[in-house]
Amino acid sequence: MPPMNVVVTVKQIPDPAEPGSLEGDNTLNRSGKLILDEADSYGVEMALQLVAAAGSGEVTLVSVTANGEVSGLRSALAMGADKAVLVSDDAIAGSDALGTAKVLAAAIGRVEGVDLVLCAVEASDGYTGTVAAQLSELLGLNSATFAKHVEIADGKVKVQRQTEAGFDEVVTSLPALVSVTAGVVEPRYPSFKGIMAAKNKPVDQVTLADLGLDASQVGWGGARQTITAVTPAPAREAGEKIVDEGDAHEKIVAFLEELKVI
């Protein structure tokens, strides 16, 4: 089989287990430690499996940040990715989905011989869910999105694409971009050896200027949108809570009767 070179876009996000907050300019507070978005661990695993199946090739991570953070990238390198390109620039803060896609596209342009680009369907923090489509358009690539199963053979990629009603079998030719859902594969845990090796793997850190991008195309200016209000959503009140003493089902039946459902 020919070598398989896969680029995986990965996002470093604030730990979702911690309560999130917004900065004064209404961007997400990303000042604490950033971790690998769990949504991206599936793409990393998929890439590792595809390269292993091909027998040769490389997995390159591409990531975008405003603050030079690498801890999330190291987690993905520890899983087994070979190298990373990290675009780090203050001007990236406030970028929207299209701005992010423009930076990713320019960064992927630095990687040679790309057969496949893998993205998550959506990030866990912003969940716009459109970067994969925007990126494939900017790169001029065919795309197969929302993949829950991916197979590669004879220069073609075949995916099971989730739909509202079930799934479609979709086929396209390489090079291509595929966005994968959580659960497409089971991500591995980094081994101790992997964690140690990750410390010395190459991370090519570049700025917007290195990519030939003007700061006005990204960040708040490039986003061409203004946040006009941030308000707490109306909270839902909790009702009655009881501990089951063996008769909780009667309580449920009574509630359903009251609602005239039965």
Binding site: L98, Y127, T128, G129, A133, L135, E137, T163, R224
Partner: peptide
Amino acid sequence: GTTPDGRDIAGRLSAKIDRPLLSN
């Protein structure tokens, strides 16, 4: 709609005409 096809078309359209999109 925030659906698979909606996201695919809207995302590609956004890049093609260089306009931002708002999702969800």
